[in-house]
C-alpha cells in the first residue's frame, strides 16, 4: 500500500465513521419531528399574515403622508386592512383557545 492509497483509505474510513456513527447510536426510535400539527401551521401562517397586514397599514399611513392615496381611499383601505387584522386575530385567538382546551380545531382558516 503506497501513501496515496493510505490517504484514500483514511478518507473513506473517516467518512464512513462520520455518517455511520449516528446510525448506531440507538436513535432509530426517536422521531425527527412531531406529527404535523395543522393548527400550529395555520397559527404560524397567521402570525406572518398579521405582521404583513400591520406593515401594510404602516405603508398606507406613509402613502397618505406622502400624498399617494386620497383621503377617501385611505379610509377605505385602512378599514379593509383593520378588518383583515381583526379576522386574523380572531382566528388566532380561536386556535389558542382550542390548543388550551386540547381540542383540535376543525374549522379551516379563513383569512381575507
Amino acid at each position: 500500500m503506497n501513501f496515496v492509497h493510505f490517504i484514500q483509505l483514511i478518507l473513506v474510513l473517516a467518512i464512513l465513521g462520520a455518517v455511520g456513527v449516528p446510525l448506531f447510536r440507538g436513535l432509530s426510535k426517536i422521531k425527527l419531528f412531531a406529527k404535523l400539527d395543522e393548527s400550529g401551521e395555520e397559527y404560524k401562517h397567521l402570525l406572518v399574515r398579521k405582521e404583513e397586514v400591520l406593515l401594510s397599514i404602516k405603508d398606507l399611513e406613509f402613502d397618505r403622508t406622502t400624498n399617494k392615496v386620497s383621503e377617501k381611499d385611505y379610509q377605505t383601505q385602512r378599514k379593509k386592512l383593520e378588518m383583515e387584522t381583526v379576522t386574523i386575530l380572531e382566528r388566532m385567538e380561536e386556535l389558542e383557545k382550542d390548543k388550551k382546551k386540547g381540542k383540535k380545531s376543525s374549522k379551516p382558516a379563513k383569512v381575507v
Binding site: I15, A18, V19, G20, V21, P22, L23, R25, L27, S28, I30, K31, L32, F33
Partner: peptide, 23 residues
C-alpha cells in the same frame, strides 16, 4: 438518506445525512 429520514421520520438517518454536505 435525507429523503428516507424525512419520509420515515427518522432522526438517526437525518443525523447521518446531515454530515454529508460538509463531506
Amino acid at each position: 438518506s435525507y429523503i428516507m429520514a424525512v419520509r420515515g421520520n427518522r432522526i438517526d438517518l437525518y443525523l447521518s445525512a446531515d454530515k454529508t454536505p460538509v463531506i
